[in-house]
């Protein structure tokens, strides 16, 4: 058990540099001799890897949705929802409408016929102007 831990510590030292150094947090440790101790430190490199993984996955999802919007399969609502890391149930809660309506608004055909009030409500949640919602910059490029 102890040998295994030694080995882990050694390989840790060789790992990548820290990515996130905004704030130090409290971590607890246990050692048979010292018992439980506390230390204020950045997240260790291994944990930073898994934090980064979720941001990379979010970026990947965003890129995929972007393609769907460009080929006209999804509406920009799907793109901006992904951009602020939301999912349908949460967006529906912010919009105060049922989930199935949000899902419908993600079809580009339905999106084109949406009333201005609904569009501006979406835009407010996404924190963008309405014309950016109806006509995202990546479509012009």
């Amino acid at each position: 058990m102890e040998n295994e831990n030694e080995e882990i510590k050694d390989t840790k030292a060789g790992d990548d540099e820290l990515i996130y150094t905004y704030n130090r947090e409290v971590f607890y440790h246990f050692d048979k001799e010292k018992g439980f101790t506390q230390k204020v430190d950045f997240q260790n490199p291994n944990n930073q890897v898994i934090i980064k993984q979720s941001w990379d996955a979010a970026q990947q999802r965003l890129d995929e949705v972007k393609q769907l919007v460009i080929i006209g399969k999804s509406s920009p609502i799907a793109y901006y929802m992904e951009k602020i890391l939301m999912e349908v149930p949460m967006l529906a809660a912010y919009m105060e409408i049922p989930k199935w309506r949000v899902k419908r608004h993600m079809k580009s055909k339905v999106f084109k016929k949406l009333k201005p009030e609904i569009l501006s409500k979406y835009a407010a949640i996404f924190e963008i102007p309405v014309d950016q919602l109806t006509n995202p910059d990546f479509l012009n490029n």
């Binding site: 058990m1 295994e4 831990n5 882990i8 840790k12 607890y28 246990f30 050692d31 048979k32 018992g35 439980f36 291994n46 944990n47 890897v49 898994i50 993984q53």
Partner: peptide, 24 residues
């Protein structure tokens, strides 16, 4: 039991360490 718990916690930490390499 607290010692057992501490060792158990270290085992969890080992799990997350090995797991994070799969994520990488």
């Amino acid at each position: 039991i607290s010692v057992e718990m501490g060792e158990n916690a270290n085992k969890w930490r080992e799990f997350s360490y090995l797991g994070s390499r799969n994520c990488k």
